[in-house]
Design a protein around this nucleic acid. Sequence first.
DNA 1: CATGAATGAGAATTCATTCAT
DNA 2: TATGAATGAATTCTCATTCAT
Lengths: 219, 219, 219, 219
Amino acid sequence: MPVSPTPDPSTGGPEETRSARKRAAILDAATTLFLRHGYLGTSMDEIAALAAVSKQTVYKHFADKETLFSEIVTNTVSEASEPNYADVLGLEDSGDVDADLRGLARRQLARVMQPQLLQLRRLVIGEAGRFPELGRIFYAQGPERTIATLADAFTRLAERGALRFEDPHLAAAHFNWLVMSIPLNEAMLCGPDDPATSADLNRYADAGVRAFLAAYGPG
Amino acid sequence: MPVSPTPDPSTGGPEETRSARKRAAILDAATTLFLRHGYLGTSMDEIAALAAVSKQTVYKHFADKETLFSEIVTNTVSEASEPNYADVLGLEDSGDVDADLRGLARRQLARVMQPQLLQLRRLVIGEAGRFPELGRIFYAQGPERTIATLADAFTRLAERGALRFEDPHLAAAHFNWLVMSIPLNEAMLCGPDDPATSADLNRYADAGVRAFLAAYGPG
Amino acid sequence: MPVSPTPDPSTGGPEETRSARKRAAILDAATTLFLRHGYLGTSMDEIAALAAVSKQTVYKHFADKETLFSEIVTNTVSEASEPNYADVLGLEDSGDVDADLRGLARRQLARVMQPQLLQLRRLVIGEAGRFPELGRIFYAQGPERTIATLADAFTRLAERGALRFEDPHLAAAHFNWLVMSIPLNEAMLCGPDDPATSADLNRYADAGVRAFLAAYGPG
Amino acid sequence: MPVSPTPDPSTGGPEETRSARKRAAILDAATTLFLRHGYLGTSMDEIAALAAVSKQTVYKHFADKETLFSEIVTNTVSEASEPNYADVLGLEDSGDVDADLRGLARRQLARVMQPQLLQLRRLVIGEAGRFPELGRIFYAQGPERTIATLADAFTRLAERGALRFEDPHLAAAHFNWLVMSIPLNEAMLCGPDDPATSADLNRYADAGVRAFLAAYGPG
DNA sequence: CATGAATGAGAATTCATTCAT
DNA sequence: TATGAATGAATTCTCATTCAT
């Protein structure tokens, strides 16, 4: 997740680039530390030290600690949620709904269960009191958007008789959580020390899809 | 959740009770503050002040902040998970599985969605890095135990033909999360400011049970 | 050094004895802790805990921490210096000065180098700034008194031609430090972790006596 | 002993020097206070205040109190022991051993009995429990090194017939302590309030040399 | 009389933020 | 512009001592 935009040194002017590089270094360092130790558990000193810049430079780029934290979480959430969203968008009816959904489920679950994304989710949940809007952003760009898009795709599938339901949004939500809930809830609570294997994850995804099709599948 | 044993001043001996009363006051205050502001966001001074007790007294009852926090979370988790567990234990086959499961689902969801329990779950998730064993305790006494017990009950129902599945534990987990995932995940992220109404909760419970029975019900 | 007077429970009245026993327990505990961790490094809480009495009891017996410390050091110094003094007092001319002095030197050195006495000396030296009179007491009851008494004994020996010197007090001091300085100074600085063996000590004592007799002996 | 490198403001570069100046001020202040009140008796607040520096600056230069203390004692011991060592190294046989040794003894004793060095010795002895390696450093750089060097010098003197002994190291140790023990031990215990006059010290030095030569001198 | 609680200060250390250089 | 220093308060935890019970 700590991904600096790596400004192209050949195109950018050297002065503007140096500043941008520092900014990226700060973001990288802060992301790493906030994910590891939380908001209060991370100090501006540590961030500056890990970014190898002076503290003043940090404050020149970010007004204060809250701003820095917000920006990081917002950016990271956007970046992390993008592939999941795109994957759902690209859902096509190949004629084999079962296979299509299983593939989607496996890919989505694998992405959601990336250690850094799990850690981000823990962070946002833990700071829901201090930064309520960050949780809402996470929710909106994550589950909400995914499920809404999935509902559209399901509606198309239902029109072709591949699925049957009354409320597409509800069906999409059930699909989503049938696939993800078991490993995600365990991961949230049991921490980064007991990661599930990807074979486990695939089994959970398959089982979720099977239950979903038993409930919402055709005939 | 901050429930002091409420020593009856008329029956309890006056000497043993004074110390116990102080201890309870400290636990109450600390629970309130930890739930509100998190582990690092709560100071021992604040706890002592809210408990109307000197800081020394706090340290005489609890070796340090970590001990106090652990004890609180452990106690609270135990107390909070008990009714849910008991409810699943008491699940009987009245002949109307649909109604039985809907009742169970509604009661369980209502309990899990209590604001203080949600806040405790956020706290434990947010501190999973600092206190890994607390998350494991929460998981073991909460979802894990409930689902295991539910699996036993489902096995009995399956023997009477009321349910059909291959893996009772998987079916129980799917039941649990079909009922809870939608509101619980939203609540985790969207914080204590947008609480779901209990009518909403009942609807989610009913919808979850309907999907569950469509997948795992008889015939 | 922590030696409680062990009051005889059969003779003493039970009430007076209980108080005396507590007092002795406090002195024992405080002596142990002061010797181990120094004056500032020892807390009244620890003393009360180790003595198994309440803090109030400590304050009932000793006005404050300084008083307790002074009393302990004074008592311990007196007790510890007594045998050394008595040994010098009993110095007789057996006709073999060499053997007499070597025996005295060995016994004295062995006593001075007892670990607890070394620790007491370190303590008194380290607190010379805070408790100047304790150092003076230690000096007066220790080296000063021993040397003065030794000077008397040497005077008698000189009258019989067994020793020769101008200033008996100077000769006594030289005797004392020729015997003790090497191991004592090393012990002071190198701490309680590298104790000298008693064979070493005897060698130092013998070597000191030999040098002393070479300088102050007859013919 | 609190001797800052006294950066010459006219020659030193202004930027490198500021930090170094602060560091020196901290060392000076800490040395003064540690010598005066001991390790536990000195607070970091006092040190910062006396150095006219913020507490942060102290902690940026020295990781913690123990580090600061160790560094100070180590530095001071090294500086203080140097002249004594050099003086012994320069011992030459002028033909008049008596005068040579008396001169050396007087100079050494005068240096060892400097109030600040006495205080340092008390400090190190008093903290032998908490900082055992500091005592060992003091011993190694002080008495041990001096005596070893003296033993070499005595060996040369013995070859010319100016001294006679079996064990040069033992002779050197006896010389050292015959000269120093009386005033040093008194000073250790009787504190900084009763300083010996330098006339006294010279008399002790002379008497020690006289006894030494009576034992180890020629003929 | 002896225990637990209170006190009120002070310990070491860290914090986010802002001046000077 | 970017660095070291300063700030001033807050952190956890401990202290010696004194009330109440």
